[in-house]
Design a protein around this nucleic acid. Structure first.
Length: 471
RNA sequence: GGCGACGUAGCCAAGUGGUAAGGCAGAGGUCUGCAAAACCUCCAUCGUGGGUUCGAUUCCCACCGUCGCCUCCA
């Protein structure tokens, strides 16, 4: 079954067909490390994680590159204000980013190139653009001549007139050095006392867009398969990347462009500039479970539709994850009887097939989860009044493994529920309760359940005795 | 102003030219010492108005509303 993704450039679903047989090359725009990334940023990174995970199930090999933008105006300003270098400024935020990736169980890219480590590649690329006649120097800086690239605007649908007329009142500081307001800086000249690099282009620092062209081509080749980011990267960032890369190489830069919609809060885009953002540790500290955060950001809505963050949606995600995790635990804890219920095995196979079809259809994880939950209801009913045959058990465990290979929440749930192992006191309380139940001392048992609940431990009674979990 | 996206039950949300998955919340029930979990039942004419069609929530047009991008922005 072919996997299809929505391509921003052609505005239609396109089959994922790697240029190199069996090997998908994926580039995703990572964070600008001038501050800790917020959960809105992580919605995109989570979408990309789901994409990468599904690609890994569908193709033999996936090479994933995510850049870290560790030089830009804000970072330079902050470093200068703090009186230290770029690295000292960005290191804490890079560490924080990696920490948040782990918290959300996001698979790390194979490469996390940093802009500051690819200055030479950028300079070389700019030189190629000069040779191609689409770059020019002005007041020590180098600019890209948009008029020299006929396809400019194809990705964003931005026509030249619209760009000129609709500047939105913002005036770029170096606009006056440009031939055309649409032109953008490839290399920005800086003074001797400013943070910069001495290169063949003179002393300066790279423009924003050139890093992604240089790093993606360095690590994935001049033409590769997928390039992703948030919708706000479509223009100007990705539009300019195409212009730079294709003007330099004369080849198609990327096969398919994917962009995820924003996370909203209170109906508006979550953004640092709006001061309405929260970070992963912020939310975890306030009681959000990482598994629920992951589910809400990645699975509650399709990646191309905006999601609104709210306590209610987080709660719904928490309950969904619990339902899945409870079922998973129930199945794995069920002693299967030998035998094969053909109808049941068939039902599981159908669900698995529907799940895959939904994922292949532009990564429709919300739809895919619908089939999972439908199956869960049917099988819970059957588990309620019977046993599980071993054939179904195998099929089911295989399917649940596949689901979580994409969803990536079970490991988080396991940590949340049993992670910080029980304290001596909690262990003792559970033992006391077990003894009380054996003696049928219900009021004591109920009391201990409340005491444990106050300590953050939920106790449930099952046929096989009491079971506990956190939260 | 230009470009684009979205509008499905109390909330979130998938989907389809032939009368709507799933999750949350709510009501009632089964089970349970009580709970929890699980299960059963109930809860939507798909923004508004036109058009195309035997038939539209699904296609087209208009309108209303919300949001995003227009060189900081995942």
């Amino acid at each position: 079954m072919p996997m299809r993704l929505h391509d921003t450039l052609t505005r239609r679903l396109r089959m994922v067909a790697p240029l190199e047989e069996g090997h998908v090359r994926l580039y995703t725009c990572g964070p600008t490390v001038y501050a800790r990334a917020h959960v809105g940023n992580f919605r995109t990174f989570l979408f990309e994680d789901i994409l990468r995970r599904w690609l890994e199930r569908r193709f033999a090999r996936v090479t994933h590159v995510m850049n870290l933008t560790d030089v830009d105006d804000k970072i330079i300003r902050q470093a200068a204000a703090a009186g230290h270098g770029l690295h000292a400024e960005t290191a804490p935020f890079i560490d924080a980013f990696y920490e948040d990736l782990r918290t959300l169980n996001i698979r790390p890219a194979q490469h996390f190139p940093r802009a500051t480590e690819y200055i030479e590649e950028m300079v070389a690329l700019i030189e190629r653009l000069e040779e191609a006649g689409v770059a020019y120097r002005s007041a020590g800086s180098v600019y890209y001549r948009v008029a020299g690239f006929p396809h400019y605007g194809r990705l964003s649908g931005a026509r030249a007139e619209g760009l000129v007329a609709g500047a939105g009142g913002r005036v770029d500081a170096d606009e006056y050095d440009k031939e055309d307001v649409r032109d953008f800086a490839l290399w920005k000249a800086v003074g001797a006392d400013e943070i910069g690099w001495d290169t063949r282009l003179g002393r300066g620092r790279p423009g924003w867009h050139i890093e992604c062209s240089a790093m993606s081509m360095a690590l994935l080749g001049e033409s590769f398969d997928l390039h992703c980011g948030g919708v706000d990267n479509i223009f100007p960032h990705h539009e300019n990347e195409i212009a730079q890369s294709e003007a330099a190489t004369g080849r198609q830069f990327v096969q398919i462009w994917c962009h995820s919609a924003h996370l909203r809060i209170g109906g508006e885009k979550m953004a640092k500039s709006m001061d309405n953002f929260a970070t992963v540790p912020d939310l975890v500290a306030s009681g959000a479970r990482p598994s629920a955060l992951r589910y809400m950001l990645a699975a509650a809505a399709h990646y191309r539709k905006p999601v609104n963050y709210s306590d209610e949606s987080l709660h719904a995600a928490t309950e969904s994850v619990d339902r899945l995790a409870d079922f998973d635990a129930r199945v794995r804890g069920y002693p299967p009887r030998a035998g094969e219920n053909e109808a049941r095995v068939e039902r599981i196979a159908e669900a698995r097939s529907e799940f895959g079809a939904a994922m292949d259809d532009d990564l429709n994880l919300p739809g895919a989860m619908g089939t999972v939950f439908s199956l869960i209801r049917v099988l819970n009913r059957e588990l309620d009044d019977g046993e599980l045959d071993s054939a179904s058990y195998s099929a089911l465990v295989g399917f649940l493994d596949e689901v979580d290979d994409v969803l990536g929440v079970m490991e988080l749930v396991a940590n949340e529920r049993t992670g910080n192992s029980l304290s001596e006191e909690d262990r003792a309380l559970l033992d006391l309760r077990r003894v009380a139940r054996e003696r049928r001392e219900w009021s004591e048992s109920d009391h201990l359940r409340e005491v444990l609940a106050d300590r953050g431990i939920v106790v449930e009674d099952t046929g096989e005795g009491q079971r506990w979990r956190r939260l």
